[in-house]
Amino acid sequence: MTQGSAAGPGPVTRAPYCRKPYVRARLGRDGVDGKAIAWTHSEVQVKWVDRDGAMRTAWVPAAAVRRISRDDSAWHDPYDDYGFYYPGGTPGSAPGGGPDAAK
């Protein structure tokens, strides 16, 4: 696992604030759930929280990363825009949805 800038060809793309997709990435022998914060054609910059609670980022080969749903992730970003992940509202979702939104 290396940290730094992307070495892949092409421009770096970033998702809008609070709308970064959840991913599962293979880092050596370990797998992590996190968010894709940037990507090129060949690499994805993944952000996740490690076992000690520290925020980490690393550029990972795109072949070692797959998109997952927020619900399938072992980690949930506390700054999520819940409406983006649950546009129709889902039980248990935060602001803007779910059966408790009007309470």
Rank of each mutant, 00 (worst) to 15 (best):
M1C: 04
M1E: 04
T2N: 15
G4Q: 05
G4V: 08
A6Y: 02
A6N: 04
A7H: 12
G8E: 08
G8F: 03
P9T: 13
G10N: 12
V12R: 08
T13D: 13
T13L: 10
A15T: 05
P16K: 09
Y17K: 13
Y17G: 02
C18Y: 11
R19L: 04
K20L: 04
Y22T: 05
Y22M: 04
V23L: 07
R24I: 11
R24Y: 06
R26I: 12
R26M: 13
R26Q: 15
L27P: 02
L27R: 12
L27G: 01
R29Y: 01
D30K: 09
D30F: 05
G31M: 09
G31D: 12
V32Q: 08
D33V: 03
G34A: 07
K35S: 07
K35V: 12
A36N: 01
I37H: 10
I37G: 14
I37V: 15
I37E: 15
A38F: 06
A38P: 02
W39R: 12
W39A: 10
H41R: 14
S42R: 09
S42G: 11
Q45S: 14
Q45F: 02
V49N: 03
V49C: 06
D50V: 12
R51T: 08
R51Y: 03
G53D: 11
G53T: 10
R56Q: 15
R56Y: 02
T57L: 06
A58Q: 08
V60S: 09
A64F: 10
A64C: 11
R66L: 10
R67K: 07
R67I: 15
R70A: 15
D71R: 11
D72I: 00
D72K: 00
D72T: 01
D72R: 02
D72Q: 10
S73N: 09
A74R: 15
H76V: 11
D77A: 08
D77C: 11
P78C: 08
Y79P: 00
Y79A: 05
G83W: 01
G83F: 01
F84Y: 14
Y85S: 03
Y86V: 00
Y86P: 00
G89N: 03
G89P: 01
G89E: 02
T90G: 00
P91N: 11
A94C: 06
A94R: 14
P95E: 15
P95L: 07
P95N: 09
P95M: 11
G96H: 10
G96S: 04
G96R: 09
G97Q: 07
G98Q: 05
G98H: 03
P99H: 06
D100L: 10
A101S: 07
A102S: 10
A102Q: 10
K103V: 00
